[in-house]
């Protein structure tokens, strides 16, 4: 993913700090890492938060190491060969490839109604990551949130009441936002999303859909 597209919607400082300090649920880390692979602005901002972590480390707060620590570490060094990572071959962002494989063909989609399909990705249980497939011109059901929902566009584009989101853009929605993402005419839209609390759907149809969304 070396060709950087124009990205207009970025991660918040809270998310970057949470990622940098290692305190986000896995599903959120996945969306953040995937966006970072596509966005140098956020990557630079993340490195700045890493530098904050570095300066917190570089203070006088210490904890004494055991007496034989250094020797034990030299043994670890001798024992462990260097593992080389293979160069990425996929056109998808690396972090996503680690979860779904090299392309979207292998994704096991499940219909959730009105043409929309989803695939839940396996992550730690405190939040949920899913791929969403929204056919061109179709809408996701109106929904609100209790917690935070991140939606990152992998392919195509969608618009909701707040703005237009295209490849690389991430929407950060909190409980104040009730929205209806609609995929643009012309191309199906695929998004990677993470939620840390069940979505709240309004109206009859969504109540039927909700059990299928597994949330």
């Amino acid at each position: 993913m070396n060709d950087m597209k124009m990205i207009n919607h970025h991660l918040t400082d809270q998310l970057l700090m949470g990622y940098s300090s290692g305190n986000l649920p896995e599903a959120f880390n996945l969306v953040v890492a995937t966006h970072l692979s596509m966005c140098d602005n956020c990557r630079a901002a993340l490195h700045a938060f890493d530098a904050v972590g570095g300066s917190l480390l570089d203070t006088n707060e210490t904890s004494k190491m055991d007496d034989m620590s250094l020797a034990a570490t030299m043994k670890l060094i001798a024992a462990k060969p260097v593992v080389k990572k293979l160069a990425p071959t996929s056109s998808l962002p690396g972090p996503l490839v680690d979860y779904i494989g090299d392309d979207l063909e292998g994704v096991k989609w499940r219909p959730v109604g009105m043409g929309v399909r989803q695939a839940i990705l396996k992550t730690s249980k405190n939040a949920t990551a899913r791929l969403l497939y929204i056919p061109a011109g179709s809408a996701l059901p109106v929904h609100g949130h209790k917690g935070t929902e991140l939606t990152l566009v992998i392919k195509g584009a969608f618009s909701d009441e707040t703005a237009r989101f295209s490849v690389g853009d991430v929407e950060v929605a909190n409980e104040d936002i009730e929205h209806t993402p609609v995929a643009e005419i012309g191309e199906d839209c695929i998004c990677l999303s993470a939620t840390d609390a069940p979505l709240r759907f309004n109206g009859l149809v969504p109540r039927i859909v909700q059990p299928f969304l597994n949330i």
Binding site: A33, H47, A51, G54
Partner: peptide, 30 residues
Amino acid sequence: RAGVSTWIFTIARNKKIDALRKQRRPEPED
């Protein structure tokens, strides 16, 4: 791109996620 303490912090942070939180650790390409 990084100070030494920053770089060591990121390695320690990764270890914290692996060993303490025991979850997979998605990270952007190097």
